[in-house]
Write a protein that binds this DNA or RNA. Structure first.
Lengths: 157, 157
DNA sequence: CGTCTACTTCAAGTGCGCTTGAAGTCCCAG
DNA sequence: CTGGGACTTCAAGCGCACTTGAAGTAGACG
């Protein structure tokens, strides 16, 4: 399965990206990566796919779905590194997202700290517990102090 | 469906917790919450279940599965607020977890910042690209910067 | 040229965290 | 006592992100 550096087999790409071959085929099906085929029909991937895979991994970390990762990828060149102008908006958007996540976690952390201090989760005073009280007393909508964050499960009804 | 404060119907609990009734039945099936039944077989929930639900929500935010949330819940009293001794270890464990998550996100953020600066995602220099490096710096087995956090997909091969 | 591993496709399955639907029952305001 | 919304169970379905398995083919090595 030796191949030139720019024509990686799916196995090589799997090894180098740390993803399973099945995942790579799945990603290709979703359009996250592309391949050429040999005369015999086997996939050969350009090295640049490693970059795209790294991007996808990072996107997942930021809480994006594969679909969303694909949307972002669509705005970047598919066969070479993006330039600063192409990359900057994406990076900034992600940073904002990351900042939000961090802020949220810090808020939760502070609340837990308060709970430790107060022997908490008491029904009346705990900040952690109380989202619904506030929701109940302040009307519908604010269901959770921490907001509707990305890591949250899908839509609730 | 008026009921005394401590005997909430599933609808009331749903409203006050912000969860769907279907989710509540599911949680009960998983043992995360408990109920009594009326003569007619309808569920009645103690107010304390609101606390447990708040706990579950928070657990999900910290990246725990419902199963893990259940494990943690099992160590807390089910019908009243935990005391400081009961709560402290749980809160501390969560705070560690949160700290880890924050650290991870901050690392990712820094890397994105570097990428913005360098017109990045170039194969050779990008910190974002090169999961192996990051995994390596986090020690053996750590294949992914985020560690073995629950939000990650199952085992990869 | 043979062998044998890595590849191919396609359909189906998995696990989590629920939701939806059908068919039936409860219970409480009027 | 009646009407109707809220409840009941159970089975099936969904969306995501993949994995698994079967059956067959490609292609590098000796």
């Amino acid at each position: 399965m030796t191949s030139s550096a720019d024509r990686l087999t799916i196995g090589e790409l799997a090894t180098r990206s740390g993803l399973a071959t099945s995942a790579l085929r799945y990603y290709e099906e979703l359009g996250l990566i592309t391949s050429q085929r040999t005369a015999g029909g086997q996939r050969r991937y350009h090295r640049a796919m490693l970059r795209r895979l790294a991007f996808v991994r990072a996107a997942q970390r930021v809480g994006l779905s594969l679909d969303e990762a694909g949307q972002a990828l669509a705005r970047l060149p598919d066969d070479r590194a993006p330039n600063a102008a192409q990359w900057a908006p994406v990076a900034r958007a992600w940073q904002r997202r990351i900042d939000d996540q961090i802020a949220e976690l810090q808020l939760l952390r502070r609340k837990l700290g308060g709970c430790v201090g107060c022997g908490c989760l008491s029904l009346k005073t705990c900040a952690l517990y109380n989202p619904d009280d506030t929701a109940a007393t302040h009307g519908p909508g604010a269901r959770w102090l921490l907001g509707d964050t990305p890591p949250e499960p899908p839509t609730r009804t």
